[in-house]
Write a protein that binds this DNA or RNA. Structure first.
Lengths: 331, 331
DNA sequence: ACTTGGACTGTTATCGATAACATAACCGCC
DNA sequence: GGCGGTTATGTTATCGATAACAGTCCAAGT
């Protein structure tokens, strides 16, 4: 493999000059720089960042862990992060946890060995060892998609509980009373649990009974899980007049279950989802949902990281405000 | 930051012994190893792989580029890769190109600087510079999701054209004649182009006219794109009796467009998709589609890479056989 | 003429681990 | 008892770039 030494020899300069020619800030005369880059091109040189990483103690990447790489919400967030960090010359190193805290811990461990310049994790629930590793990493840590009570470092997110509260209040206002909640039944789905908690709180605040809780299985909660859960819900509480689902995917599955049974949506049962996924707006009827602005979360996290790495100040917490989007699946 | 030297001093051994204690193959006595790991734990040591990478000339990761991180098919492939590489101690470094060859080139460039042990790219179409970089990388290269005529190195994929041919032949067999194809209209969507080409070939082979080609926009082709395209298709050729869409997402959008217009599916128009996404099986009616076994592609690529890195032989090409899945959206 | 300072280039040491080699202790076996 | 082999450990040099420092040269200011 060609290295800087070879280019230096071929171009008749020192290795240091080659190194400088490769960095924009390098004070190398224009013609010499051009000559060096030309030689490098001819020799097919590929810069070796492993050496650079070690010597400069900079790796140029930010580690990001998300629960799933097949989820439009997290994809938006990653896009916001990628775009926001690009300007600072930082690359995203992406890993997925499958909604599993043990897998998250292993992932964080392997990421930290690679010396990221910052680390972004999803949610505020982590194993004890993961928390300790993050706290001791010596780089900015951002928890996103949640507003944890005891953050490790920085936070960019929203209250999942409050977001569902928005929808409950709307449903109550337009007349629904026998409202069910689907999902958030396992401790693996921490954001789902928060959403369910928000449902309970808002229902109680509205003075309504809250028995209609139906399980949707362990995350990732799929469309199929939503369909199965809806069937169980309708069997158990046939007079349900609205169901709020832990995500749009399960809501779409629930909609399909209703359609197969010939149950009118929203005539007989209203459906609400979460996340403003594409499928919510393209389903017939479209699904009432909550937009949590995933891309904005990523972008804010990126800005925060850039500020901190530049040695500046940054907010401890940035709260994003979710928004209710009315669809045809409810009044 | 704590380093091996600090642990060596605290444990009263040489740095080399500490290094060996951290590798499973290291010949260190059990009690000494335990003592060293204990000291490391107490000091909160985090292994620095940047140094290890440089000295050992091994980074322990495989670079993977996919077009989109919000696509169930590619997510399956990444899962297959991740699981297949884990056993060999290799990690996936994931990047997305947004279906843009220039972005892919930039991504490959930045990945290669980090010295991956192998690189996996999606599709067989790349910029000239990207091809040269890959060919000269000195590590195994796998192109997947396609069977390029002039592969760079190894290939794991299937013929997108033949896969669509499967569906055309089925549609013709059950009686559809005025069949349209949606998508594959921009050179940015290389797999879409292949699918469209396969449509044309199969239609001609069946002796049918092939004028009904409707554009679906640049990838990622969304559900909404599918709905818009279906409206245009129905306006232009109202007597169309079947439409094959470039993906299940656009097929789902097309289904929604029909439902909003009161057009019976499959009574009046049959719909076919591509990819066996969740939404295809959960839509009402479910959508006839083609399963291309994305996870298997990733797994095969991983196996191939492990063989090559172990110094063994590996096939030049692994072909996956797509399968037609009949849904309620067609006969 | 002499200083000053900026622009450019070179020299040396170093980042933190590990490969390669050297050494020491111990074991069994003829 | 000596020898080869194994196990456990230490020593030295090195991976390929860059930080830190040291010049050199030349133009401009006094």
């Amino acid at each position: 493999m060609i290295k800087m030494k070879d280019i230096a020899a071929a171009a008749g300069v020192s290795v240091m000059t080659v190194s400088r020619a490769f960095r924009s800030d390098g004070a190398v005369s224009a013609e010499r720089r051009a000559a060096i880059l030309q030689v490098a091109e001819e020799l097919g040189y590929v810069f070796d960042s492993t050496a650079s990483n070690l010597r400069s103690q900079k790796t140029g990447f930010v580690a990001v862990t998300i629960p799933s790489i097949n989820n439009g919400n997290f994809a938006d967030t990653v896009r916001g992060l990628t775009e926001g960090l690009r300007g600072a010359g930082l690359q995203v190193l992406l890993g997925y946890t499958d909604y599993d805290m043990a897998a998250e811990e292993a992932l964080i461990d392997s990421f930290l060995r690679r010396r990221p310049e910052a680390i972004v994790v999803t949610g505020g629930a982590h194993t004890g060892r993961a928390r300790r590793m993050l706290a001791g990493a010596g780089v900015p840590v951002v928890e996103m998609w949640d507003l944890p009570a005891d953050p490790i470092d920085r936070v960019v997110g929203f209250s999942n509980a409050d977001a569902v509260g928005l929808m409950v209040r709307h449903f109550v206002r337009v007349g629904y009373r026998r409202i069910a909640f689907m999902g958030g039944d396992t401790d693996r789905d921490t954001r789902g649990l928060d959403r369910r908690r928000g449902f309970l709180t808002a229902m109680q605040a509205a003075g309504l009974e809250v028995q209609r809780l139906i399980e949707a299985g362990i995350p990732p909660v799929t469309m199929r899980d939503g369909a199965i859960a809806m069937d169980r819900l309708l069997d158990r509480w046939p007079d349900t007049d609205a169901v709020i689902c832990v995500s749009d995917l399960s809501a779409f599955g629930a909609l399909g279950a209703c359609q197969r049974r010939g149950i009118a949506v929203p005539g007989q049962v209203a459906i609400g989802g979460f996340g403003a996924f594409d499928v919510a707006s393209c389903a017939v009827p479209s699904i009432t949902t909550i937009d949590v602005f995933g891309k904005q979360i990523g972008h804010s996290a990126a800005v925060m990281i850039c500020q901190l790495l530049a040695g500046g100040q940054a907010d401890q917490m940035i709260a994003v405000t979710p928004e209710l989007i009315l669809g045809g699946s409810s009044l």
